[in-house]
Amino acid sequence: MSDQPGSEGADSAEAGAVRRFWTRLGLPGLVDVHTHFMPESVLRKVWAYFDSAGPLTRVEWPVVYRYGEDTRLALLRDFGVRAFTAMLYPHKPGMAAWLNGWAAQFAARTPDCLHTATFYPEPGAEAYVRQAVEAGARVFKSHVQVGAYDPGDPLLDPVWGLLSEAGVPVVMHCGSGPAPGKHTGPGPVARMLARHPRLPLIVAHMGMPEYGDFLKIAERHPGVRLDTTMAFTDFVEATAPFPRAELGRLADLGDRVLLGSDFPNVPYRYVHQLDALARLGLGDDWLRAVCYGNGARLFGVGTGAAAG
């Protein structure tokens, strides 16, 4: 995976713009809870899927940051991202434990990456999730759409219970965007939370396109948060706009909204996600909380200890 030619100048200019964004807000940087790092062979397949405009995307999706791992890490740091994740996920049984092994090694050599892990509804899931937690995993990724599984699958009950007890958040792609799946949408998540109400769940992509339904779930469950990944951007607003009538509810939940970007797998520049948040008009205090404060508090960024 070689770096794209002619991108260095654009990246440098963008880094300046990103740093001006958080400097103006008086922040020490950004906390991004939804970035992707994974084994090179897996990432190549993910990018090939985006290139093919596969059935879960259905649109052209030119990945902007198609760089080698070292370049991607350097760029995030140049942006001023103080903590980020290595979101990775299995699409079939037998993958999760292997991915977790890679992620543990990545976290060990990348101290600003929050140790990330994943799982799949399969025998043995509780054991390898427990192993990951004991090894220091600070956040998990669940991809209901790609994995095509019900979060209420009985095989996941002990996983949800374990994560609830440990206070380790799980970022879940559970909304029906960009294309609905058999188990996407608010219903399966609400049923799962009825059994595990203390689970620290982070709904990826603001739950698009079922924004209002997932806001309601967050209002009912104090441990539920939402990340901004791709939401409010021009790319998403063209097909799944956030309803402006819900902006008041979004403002009220400002202490439980977290910055997410989907870096590097985005078809636009990183700074656009930040600009899209600013143009919502919810104020600088809301931006400070979303772009740094909420994530820093949840993960103990700058304190040396994770917060549950």
Rank of each mutant, 00 (worst) to 15 (best):
D3M: 03
S7A: 10
A17L: 06
R20S: 13
R24S: 14
P28D: 00
H36E: 09
M38A: 10
E40Q: 13
V46S: 06
F50C: 11
S52G: 08
A53F: 04
P55V: 13
L56A: 11
P62N: 04
R66N: 07
R66P: 01
E69P: 01
T71H: 11
A83D: 08
T85A: 15
Y89V: 14
Y89K: 08
W98I: 15
A104R: 07
A104T: 00
A104I: 00
Q105I: 01
Q105L: 11
F106E: 03
T118A: 12
P121S: 08
P123Q: 11
R130Q: 12
A132M: 09
A137V: 12
F140Q: 04
K141Y: 08
H143V: 13
V146H: 10
G147L: 14
D153N: 13
P158F: 07
G167S: 10
H173F: 00
G177C: 12
G181P: 12
H183D: 11
G185W: 12
P186A: 13
P186Q: 08
P188F: 11
R191N: 07
L193K: 11
P200M: 05
H205E: 06
M208Q: 04
M208K: 02
E210F: 02
E210A: 02
K216T: 12
R220L: 05
H221I: 00
G223S: 14
V224T: 02
V236C: 01
P243S: 08
R249A: 15
R256L: 00
L259V: 05
S261W: 05
D262C: 01
F263P: 00
Y270M: 14
L280C: 09
L280S: 08
D284C: 10
D285W: 08
V290A: 12
G293T: 12
G300L: 09
G304M: 09
A307V: 07
